[in-house]
Write a protein that binds this DNA or RNA. Structure first.
Lengths: 202, 202, 202, 202
DNA sequence: AGATAACCGAGACGGTACGTCTCGTCTTGAT
DNA sequence: ATCAAGACGAGACGTACCGTCTCGGTTATCT
């Protein structure tokens, strides 16, 4: 999340409770105010913490929101439903449920937008949000290949490329449905999506 | 874009050149500064216009950026390549090319993020950006159905639902690839994507 | 007080009322809080003015306080009492009365202290506070010389040197009495002081 | 300087070296930064001491600076030059020399200004700075009276009043010359000043 | 020799003010 | 009625210090 010189053993240690309070306050502020009206001073007040404490730990609004939103994705896990289609439906539905929460809606695309001009921020997003999700794609695929539902990949590079493609298609579709089209990615939609993903349009 | 009282006939008329200058200045500022550091005062200065003039025509930063970015999508058109796959590849590649431009990258997701809390803004985006794209999906599908590459839809409602799904999948994948994964949606990627979209993973 | 580009004729003119309100608020804050606890934000609030307005006109706390305190010395004038001793007593008493006011006590020495490291500030103090007082010394002396109570000066340079000396002795004694010794420079003290100044200790 | 509970005999004693280091660091900081930009954190760092140590010994910036500056006046002593005029010139020149040092210039008037609203601080200044100087006035006067250069005082109260007056005139003139007029109180000026003080203007 | 107690450095803490920036509005004279 | 210019009230920004606190550790004196 944030780091200090590893050898700093002296001085008063940082309050562990403050971190949790700040991230919770950030999510609450995202829900109430949305990204653009969220101010760090307000977050600090909500968390019962001084602004300086907040700036001591995070470089700015972007980094703070990434960490606050990333925690939402901790609960994602791959169900073992017995079939590839059911596995995908389960994961996509979990992802859609998280993305439907107002703190995710408000915050996620905003930081992605900011990240187009900030490599460190993009890397932070990749590490704490994207990787968490991509793991599930990889695990689901290898399970499906074990079951014989998907053909094995010819080589490692092709495997990585395909995984990236699948991931962009799955995450992209859910995000677009939720944020741009502003329609719920509910069970029915997830079923339709999964059918097209597995069998194609034709 | 913006409206005035319909009966205003007296007084100095609005400068038509100002609109174009402002939108161009907005795009230039997006390229240089990105969404979050773009300020309306700066845009006004770049456009050689007073801030008042700008506020007389747009309600705020969001609306202005939507209009500025929307113009980028004017050039989208459906090629007639003879096959569904080639049509899709052509359109997706056009879309990816536009989205790769820094003014689009910076601005588009930012206003989408803002739109999660502002219905009027979402409607403005839908009307001036999304509809322009969705038209192509509809046109491409009916052409493919005429060719016999896709089955006809059983009823109008199912047709609309499927069009929305396809659109979310196409636009979402390109956006996610470009902004989140931060990899280029180049010809090779577009071919892979189109194959999965039409034939499925299995 | 503060200047702008002389040729700026366009744009909204600065509010004249704001200047007066700000200076009055500064004096009020000096009385209530003293120099070190006076904050520009508080002055702005008292004056019913935005902080930006204040900073647009003054470079900082020092300059503001000099101007606010300088106005107190506007009322100084040389009485014509018929004798040098009475003239001096009158002027010194006026000066002492002004210096006894809390806004002068708090502010004046503070800005003088700051001016030891800021030439522009010292010049500002000299122009708006010191010169106002020195005028009286010069006028009083020439009047006394006309009366024959003081000998004429041999040359202009000596005249200037003596005037400076007298001024430092008069102002210095009153300031030291008031601020360092923290005793009132009342009529009795002023009479004793004038006697020593005119006739010496011996 | 600072006190502790008198019965504290156990525990680690305070470092004597720390006091000296802190006062020296304070003077160095006054020279480099001036009163208003001097910070206690910086003084602590310069002295190689923790901020806590500093606050354990002084109540704040004001008290610390008074002590730091007071040490400068330790070297003041009354020369025995044989005549009142020469005695005065000697003492005034010593005083002027000390006051010309940047740490005195910056610090002294600042704490005097603060003392207008803080009785304890004024008393501290009186005890550690003013009394040191007034002693010399008293000693010089009694020596001059012994020589017959000055008339004896009629009573003790008048003696005290006159001593205060002389002190305010001497110290005030030097301070005003040095800080407000910002001219050096050099030998020539001191001679002119002494002449007026002893013989008056007429 | 231990226990006790005040000291020490380091540095995080809740606050407050700073001076700057941008917002969206208002007020000029001119077109 | 619109325009360019620029002042205005409002309020967030990120930084700097304040004076306090909490650590682990260090001297001293007092058993």
């Amino acid at each position: 999340m944030q780091s200090r010189s590893p050898a700093s053993r002296t001085g008063r240690p940082r309050s562990a409770a403050a971190d949790a309070a700040i991230l919770a306050a950030t999510r609450a502020a995202l829900v109430e105010l949305g990204w653009s009206k969220l101010t760090l001073g307000d977050v600090a007040t909500r968390a019962g913490v001084a602004k300086t404490t907040l700036y001591r730990r995070w470089a700015g609004k972007n980094e703070l929101v990434v960490d606050a939103v990333a925690e939402l994705f901790d609960e994602l896990e791959l169900p073992d439903s017995g079939s590839l289609a059911a596995d995908i439906e389960g994961v996509v539905l979990q992802f859609a449920t998280i993305l439907a929460r107002p703190e995710a809606k408000s915050g996620l695309m905003a930081v992605v937008s900011e990240a187009t001009r900030d490599d460190a921020l993009r890397e932070r997003i990749r590490a704490s949000v994207v990787e968490r999700q991509k793991r599930l794609v990889l695990a689901g695929r290898s399970r499906a290949q074990a079951r014989g539902e998907l053909p094995p990949e010819p080589d490692a590079e092709a495997a990585a490329r395909t995984a990236d493609l699948i991931f962009d298609m799955v995450a992209g579709a859910v995000v677009h449905r939720t944020l741009v089209s502003a329609e719920p990615a509910d069970e029915e939609w997830v079923r339709s999506f999964t059918r097209v993903l597995l069998q194609g349009l034709t």
